[in-house]
Design a protein around this nucleic acid. Structure first.
Length: 648
RNA sequence: GCGCCUGUAGCUCAGAUGGAUAGAGCAUUUGCCUUCGAAGCAAAGGGUCGGGGGUUCGAGUCCCUCCGGGCGCACCA
């Protein structure tokens, strides 16, 4: 990895610190920032502002004194300038580029032995995935890729609630409404879009009054774990999980392990958790009021100024545990604090050889595996569940696990809604009030909304039209692959370019457009860079050995050009951008960076004709830039889960 | 009522740790294909950063307050 910028920044900061220590006996860290405008140099130090009061001198005078004192004394720094009280640093461009070229490219990061857990996707296994689930999975998957790129060990979990009411509803629909037997349902699971069939069935039963009665009967049997309805529950859930895994695989999303609710029940995870909670007096048996007979967690555990009415029921008066209770047990397991574990079997092996495991209740036929036991846990769950996530963290705190509670991170994000015109495109009827809104939330329950696979299919079809119009002569399979890569890129980028707190108003036309700030624009820049490199070879000019033909001198000459220099700086910034994006938990920052990089290269591509450059030294530098750009952008895109097509 | 999030260009959004002239895309208008393919590039117009106070050398960013949106606050998951 390249950390030239970071290294230089550090040595400049240190040089300033040392100087302040020597001259003024001041012991303080020196902050650096990126100047607002590029003509102020590469680094700006506002240090004089901080010192103004202490030294009782004007910032300008202090900055000038520092500039004079340090001039020519820092490696890699060409000039120190004072402007508006700032101390601005200009890098030695030849030195900087040469450091990148000769720098040690090998990955110096050590893989941490400590493991971070990311839980995402978590779709109820009762019907096809919809567009909201895509945001969850893409966000989670990208964050995983980002942490891995930083050298962190990550385990990806996808929790399967295979015994909940949602599955029960579909089972009830099959049994009571459709009068199907377990074997008949099993036969249905073999048809291509079983998840679509369940989607419609679920919508149907949700609107029936009888549904609630049937659901009650069904869920009772499912929770007991035996009987024909329970069997049908497993058939449905297992089949839908396969559908979801396949849908997600189209996006390049993979999992390490699927812990299931049925095992949490059968292995009695809750019982262990319940004992701990009672023992530590984290919960108590309420004897009066509306919660009489329930075990509750006092509101004061998770909320300031909480009153009696803020208490959260953990165990119902009938003795059954609530969702939050189970979630606390599950969270304890993730940290290795429960004292129990699942058994596992391999569910599938991905094309790259990576296995995906699923939990099972008995040791029979189990494969030894080491899951859970993380030092930090990221739960990718939409922002509406922040209250429940707070209660889970409070549960850990109440048990004395303060550290783990602090490392239980709710990686929240806002929902995906639809724009009114997209609702119209999809045939969803809107009230006049809704039509005036910027976006409309469509409930999956009504059977409306956008299915993930339909959206992906539409994106591929759209991309395919463009590919066909440009590359008639390419073989069918190749065009399909490229269209697929472009479609996934468009989708992933669209889901990632917004920050997590933004409600995405999904618009079909906008997502299907490949112009402007979109994934395909970024991809196109990467493809163009590859084209230059490939054409070089085709013209019989093999790529030079840059270390032999480029040096600080040739670099200094070429990078006297301001645009070239700014692009080089941007390209070299990847690692600091990535580090900040991981630190802030914001994949959008990396997506924005990819776009800026692509923009810079598109300008470069237009302004400089690399292969036609007559001056050999300059052509070598341009070629090196092209290669450096291609490498860095591909790293960025692969971290975003985006492939670079062979052509576009 | 309480809690969390949010208000930036006509529209959709970026603006980490307070910093120099607030940035992109879309839309609008206007130029650029003699193939490293225009899914591109260049240019123009468009802003009281919701209102008002405060903190300080300095506020889109921090604090208070008001106004406007969104989402939560179940013995549902």
């Amino acid at each position: 990895m390249n950390i030239v910028f970071h290294t230089l920044e550090g040595s400049i900061s240190r040089a300033l610190s040392d100087y302040l220590q020597a001259q003024f006996q001041l012991d303080m860290p020196v902050a650096t920032e990126q100047p607002k405008q590029s003509d102020f140099g590469e680094l700006a130090l506002p240090v004089a502002f901080q010192l103004a009061r202490q030294l009782k001198k004007a910032p300008k005078a202090i900055a000038e004194q520092l500039a004079a004192g340090l001039a020519g004394k820092i490696d890699g720094v060409a000039a120190l300038e004072v402007a508006n009280g700032y101390l601005n640093v200009r890098f030695d461009r030849g030195y900087y580029a040469n450091q990148i070229l000769t720098g040690n490219d090998q990955d110096t990061q050590e893989f941490s032995t400590r493991k971070t857990i990311v839980e995402h996707t978590n779709i109820n296994p009762n019907k096809a995935a919809h567009i909201g689930h895509l945001r969850n999975a893409i966000l989670g998957d990208t964050f995983v890729r980002m942490m891995k790129a930083m050298g962190t060990r990550v385990e990806v979990q996808n929790y399967i609630d295979n015994t909940g009411v949602q599955v029960a509803d579909v089972v009830a629909a099959f049994h009571f409404l459709e009068k199907k037997t377990a074997d008949e349902v099993r036969a249905l699971t073999l048809q291509p879009r079983f998840d679509y069939l369940c989607w419609d069935l679920y919508a149907k039963i949700s609107q029936l009054e009888d549904g609630k009665v049937w659901r009650g009967e069904t869920i009772h049997e499912i929770e007991a774990g035996h009987g024909p309805l329970s069997e049908m529950g497993h058939i449905v859930a297992d089949a839908i999980v396969e559908c979801h895994l396949n849908t997600m695989l189209r996006l390049g999303v993979q999992y390490d392990v699927l812990p299931r609710e049925s095992e949490i029940l059968h292995l009695q995870f809750w019982a262990s958790c319940f004992e701990q909670l009672k023992e530590r007096k984290a919960i108590y048996l309420e004897t009066e009021g509306k919660n009489s007979g329930c075990w509750v967690m006092p509101g004061s555990a998770f909320r300031e100024n909480a009153g009696e009415e803020d208490s959260k029921v953990i165990v119902r008066s009938n003795g059954t545990v609530t969702y939050v209770g189970k979630d606390i047990a599950y969270q304890l397991w993730k940290f290795g604090l429960l004292g129990k574990d699942f058994y596992y079997r391999k569910l599938r092996t991905y094309a790259d050889g990576h296995p995906c495991f699923v939990s099972q209740a008995s040791p029979d036929g189990a494969t030894p595996a080491d899951f859970g036991n993380g030092v930090a846990v990221f739960n990718v769950i939409d922002s509406r569940q922040s209250y429940l996530q707070d209660v889970v963290a409070a549960g850990l705190r109440a048990l004395g696990y303060n550290d783990q509670a602090a490392r239980s991170i709710h990686f929240s994000y806002e929902m995906v809604a639809l724009t009114p015109r997209t609702c119209v495109d999809l045939g969803i009827e809107l009230s006049e009030e809704d039509k005036a809104r910027p976006y409309v939330e469509v409930s999956g329950r009504k059977g409306l909304g956008v299915k993930a696979d339909d959206l992906i299919d539409q994106l591929i079809a759209r991309a395919r039209v463009e590919v066909d119009s440009r590359h008639e002569s390419k073989p069918e399979a190749s065009r399909h692959l490229v269209a697929h890569q472009i479609a996934i890129c468009a989708l992933r980028y669209f889901m990632l370019k917004f920050t997590r707190t933004t409600v995405i108003a999904f618009d079909l036309q906008e997502a299907l457009s490949f112009e402007g700030e979109t994934g395909p624009y970024v991809q196109y820049a990467a493809v163009r860079a590859q084209n230059i490199l490939r054409k070089t070879a085709e013209r019989g000019l093999p790529l030079p050995n840059f270390k032999a033909v480029c040096n600080a001198g040739t670099f200094a000459a070429a990078f006297a050009n301001e645009d070239l220099w700014q692009l080089l700086l941007d390209i070299s910034r990847l690692d600091s951008i990535l580090a900040a994006a991981v630190e802030n938990g914001e994949p959008a920052a990396l997506a924005k960076y990819a776009y800026q990089l692509a923009q810079g290269f598109s300008r470069f591509y237009h302004d400089f004709r690399v292969l036609d450059e007559p001056d050999e030294d300059r052509r070598n530098v341009l070629l090196w830039m092209t290669q450096y750009f291609a490498t860095q952008l591909e790293r960025t895109l692969s971290t975003l889960g985006i492939a670079v097509p062979e052509y576009m």
